[in-house]
């Protein structure tokens, strides 16, 4: 599988993402400038974290209307894989590729800390190297990670099995104290109906090396590499 990372002005976790992808894929991902219009050479499009266009209008809103996004939509329409992390998740919701929105954290403060994610299903291309119901540690670093959708949309996500990850305690319980940003139903990551597009708020890519404190995020990239 060949991966490409989309660079919008203001993105800042592209290097972290490239390190994680290279570690699992064995090859460097392609860096895709936001003014490019052709993505047919990559199987996986990754939109990394950061502050695209300064997050000035609304997180991800301007990036979602960037020239490259037409190609991203075409990539999705032909069943290509897309991973959006943090700001990338916000871009995917703004672009209409995933439902819902990411609001300000409930505390109204930026949150930079470890969190635990419970894997809701392991039969996807993003999660095959995890076990359903297992938890792993990842890093969160965002001011606007509070996932919101109306009840009908949330019910639909749950009924169709499109919730990929939930915030949980280290032992896997869903609890308010483990859901620091206040996300609806503790949702940390969601899938598109064809399960080929994943939006995830915490940074799996920042815990892929024991030296940095853990490898909880590595199976996500290993899963993709094995697809």
């Amino acid at each position: 599988m060949k991966a490409g990372i989309v660079i919008f002005p203001g993105i800042n976790r592209e290097r972290d993402m490239a390190i994680a992808l290279k570690q699992s894929f064995g090859v460097e991902p392609r860096m895709i400038w936001h003014k490019e219009t052709e993505l047919s050479d990559v199987d996986l499009v990754v939109i990394p974290g950061g502050f695209s266009f300064g997050d000035y209008l609304r997180c991800g809103a301007m990036a979602a209307r960037s020239p490259v996004m037409d190609a991203v939509h075409r990539h999705a329409a032909r069943g290509g894989y897309i991973l959006g992390v943090c700001n990338g998740f916000q871009v995917l919701t703004e672009a209409g590729l995933l439902p819902g929105a990411l609001l300000r954290n409930a505390s109204l403060r930026f949150l930079s800390m470890d969190c635990h994610l419970r894997v809701e299903r392991s039969d996807t291309v993003f999660t095959s190297r995890y076990q359903t119901g297992s938890t792993f540690r990842a890093v969160m670093a965002h001011g606007d990670g509070n996932f919101f959708a109306d009840d009908a949309a949330l019910n639909r996500l749950e009924q169709q099995g499109l919730v990929a990850f939930r915030y949980a305690t280290a032992s896997g319980e869903i609890a308010p104290e483990a859901n620091r940003n206040g996300s609806a139903r503790s949702i940390a990551g969601i899938l598109s109906p064809n399960r080929r597009v994943l939006g995830l708020m915490p940074h799996a890519e920042d815990l892929v090396d024991p030296l940095m404190g853990g490898t909880g995020g590595k199976p996500l990239f290993d899963s993709l590499a094995a697809a």
């Binding site: 290097r15 930026f110 930079s112 940095m212």
Partner: peptide, 16 residues
């Protein structure tokens, strides 16, 4: 205080 600062961006922070 620290929880409001991104201490991990770059992926190279060994001791936070």
């Amino acid at each position: 205080v620290w929880d409001q600062y991104d201490s991990t961006v770059g992926g190279q922070t060994v001791k936070r």
